[in-house]
């Protein structure tokens, strides 16, 4: 069984998920996540050697679309939903680093 989840784990996960937690929330979430993971211990402990994972409940494959252009969305309609836009683009605060 995996080691129980710690507040440090929860803080790390919050960073990954771009969520800020108060100290109180951190404590609370750690306890709640630990409880759910403890409930999942039965699943974790199951011997599933040789059992393939199911990603799709009903197996279908090769769902493909023809390479044909269809009309795009209306830019004004799309940008009207944006919190901020400028010269046809979505405006965002400073980006601190290059994309990974």
């Amino acid at each position: 069984m995996a080691t129980p989840i710690s507040t440090a784990d929860v803080a790390h996960v919050a960073r990954l998920a771009r969520l800020a937690l108060t100290d109180e929330e951190l404590e609370q979430f750690t306890g709640q996540l630990a409880a759910v993971l403890a409930h999942a211990a039965d699943v974790e402990a199951l011997d599933t050697t040789g059992v393939p994972p199911t990603a799709h409940p009903l197996p279908i494959d090769n769902v493909l679309r023809d390479d044909v252009v269809v009309p795009c969305a209306d830019r004004e309609e799309v940008l009207a939903q944006a919190p901020a836009s400028e010269s046809g683009r979505f405006r965002v605060p400073r980006i601190l680093g290059e994309a990974p």
Partner: peptide, 21 residues
Amino acid sequence: TYALSAGYYDAYYGQAQRVRT
């Protein structure tokens, strides 16, 4: 996020998908 994060995927998400089978 925890269930998918490095080091836990197999124990949690992967295992749950096997249980699904």
